[in-house]
Design a protein around this nucleic acid. Structure first.
Lengths: 344, 344
DNA sequence: TTGAAAGCGTTACCAC
DNA sequence: GTGGTAACGCTTTCAA
């Protein structure tokens, strides 16, 4: 008798074991197995042992789909980010995943930097009956807000601090951050301070940073010079180009605050190539501290945002609500840090 | 009469609309609604219109949990990565997500660089009855392999090319890559070629690259010098330190291949700080091309891996199987590119 | 083209 | 402590 082929995939695999199979194997009812698995203490020690043996013997894996339907309670958490590629979001994602662990699987969708993309992702999550949602953003379409409000599940927005959250929010104030860095440059004695930011029409965080820059100038009684305000795409090369453009002005700046992505690092590399002394000829300040900014020479004076912690707190708030430890709206400001190095 | 509080969250929200509610609203049976939603063509135009109206009116969102249980077919795909933080994995994740779209929500778990972590993540996914799994790794525990084989769902391993996949695999050969870069350095006329890699005891990809380095030396009839082989943690600083260590040898190398992460960029920055001419005094080669390596001066000669495409192909293979367009095992080699710039 | 009945595998509820 | 029974909201199957 020849044995059947070993790896005839995708052969019809035997149907997965059910709870009833475990019950039979252990000589108890399905109900008892269910309880034993969810709350081992609610079952006698002997029964528990027999059930555990049976589970191991037949390789039983609980069916969470059936469980969720029956209990009307899911365990999956949904997370929407603008992009999966961006390492800044990756920090927050990791923070969320660290807290959730395997008990709360994480569904991640990429909303593609558009309100419509986010809305579709949220709708898809709700169809999967997620037990909570984390949004990496604080601007949403009206329908996104409505969907989430009506779903009756907890929702945490992360990122730019918001005054009117859908439900809960964790983040920091980009405006305050922009203001703080600009004030630092003013305090250091720089007279003509340039600003480079990501396209602020589409990006509320970038817009807030610019507002902070303006606020700081106004507070110091400085006039704003439109020629010193520059918009740049993300990327090292883009930061370098922006610095070059500002330095080509008839009256170039003596300091530039490049807010976002790795713009500041790009500017520093460009300055090195051009032989501009930093900070002697032009000071450079950035945002979003990372290994790159601290490893360059000179080190980049920058803002440090608690992105990982934001993820952890977002997940914690969600779990607290799911497990009844908290209720009601909440907005949590985790602040930021000004890291002063040699570049400014 | 005072209206009830507007945002009494978490107030008991009204139960979500069911298919039956849509059916009543549209004056048809639930069965007809089910069909209309999954295959609009199978229902008369008038009926379809009434159903769509009803869906919109009551804001119905299909319950995929119930649907999956009933049809015994899920739509969620599971993805396990060693870390969510690492931007290299982010490329592949994005590729997978791009192809899957919202029709196949993506569950992502972080296996934490350990076989046990991956195993737990896989078990959690199977409990959620995912319809397919993508693994960012080709080394697994015996139980991981067994679980996946018995689950009877498609599985794609990505990363280092593997000869014996659990089911399907997409990737490139790290050994070939290591060999190619080393051969390039030999062809350029470098005599003492150093190798710096990530800890190869725990990392099969790093081990393969080292094997490739050795193979290339052997092919060229060169003796291997253990002093020139260095292990380094990931990170810019680590790459700089590794280069410094090699350059401090009695007979320093004239070229160093730093394989992995941003080690090469760190080495280049270190060389700039120390005033070592690159490639005059020491040539530097790296791997994993990114904006950083191309933006530095000189540009880094490096290996480019199709990480985004690997994700896209992995997802495509999964969908092809799920939709019956393909069957059987498959191993896909997407190769790599040698990018020659000024540093080596 | 449409509908009724019978599950899918689990958990809630209530009895023993 | 344990077990029956009836959902959970949908899809499958079969009949009209």
């Amino acid at each position: 008798m020849t044995p059947p082929p070993q790896d005839a995939r995708p052969s019809a695999s035997p149907p997965a074991a059910r709870m009833l199979d475990v019950a039979r194997e252990a000589g108890v009812s399905a109900m008892t197995v269910s309880r034993a698995l969810r709350d081992p203490a609610s079952v006698s020690a002997k029964t528990l042992a027999r059930i555990n043996e049976a589970v191991a013997r037949i390789g039983y894996l609980p069916n969470r789909v059936a469980g969720s339907l029956s209990s009307r309670r899911g365990n999956v958490v949904g997370l929407v980010v603008p992009s999966l590629r961006n390492s800044l979001f990756a920090e927050t994602i990791q923070g969320v995943a660290d807290i959730l662990g395997n008990a709360h699987p994480l569904m991640i969708a990429d909303g593609g930097y558009t309100l419509a993309g986010e809305e579709q992702a949220v709708a898809a999550f709700l169809a999967q009956r997620v037990c909570g949602v984390v949004l990496h953003n604080t601007r949403h379409s009206a329908r996104t807000r409505a969907l989430l409000r009506d779903a009756g599940i907890p929702c945490v927005e992360t990122g730019n601090l918001v005054r009117d959250p859908i439900d809960m929010a964790v983040g920091f104030s980009n405006q305050e951050a922009g203001r703080a860095m600009t004030a630092h440059l003013i305090a250091r004695g720089y007279r003509r301070i340039g600003f480079v930011g990501l396209p602020w029409r589409e990006n509320d965080r970038a817009a807030e940073r610019l507002a902070g820059y303006r606020a700081a100038l106004a507070e110091a009684g400085r006039a704003e010079d439109a020629a010193l305000i520059h918009q740049a795409a993300p990327g090292l090369a883009s930061g370098g180009a922006a610095l070059a453009a500002l330095m080509a002005l008839p009256t170039p700046p003596d300091a530039v605050f490049l807010s976002g992505d790795v713009l500041a690092a790009g500017a520093l590399l460009e300055a090195a190539r051009r032989g501009w002394a930093v900070p002697g000829q032009v000071a450079i300040a950035g945002s979003d501290d990372g290994e790159l900014q601290s490893s360059l020479t000179p080190g980049v004076t920058t803002l440090r945002f608690p992105r990982h912690e934001i993820g952890r707190r977002a997940a914690t708030m969600l779990l607290d609500r799911l497990e009844g430890r908290a209720s009601g709206r909440a907005v949590l400001d985790l602040g930021f840090e000004l890291v002063v190095r040699a570049s400014a």
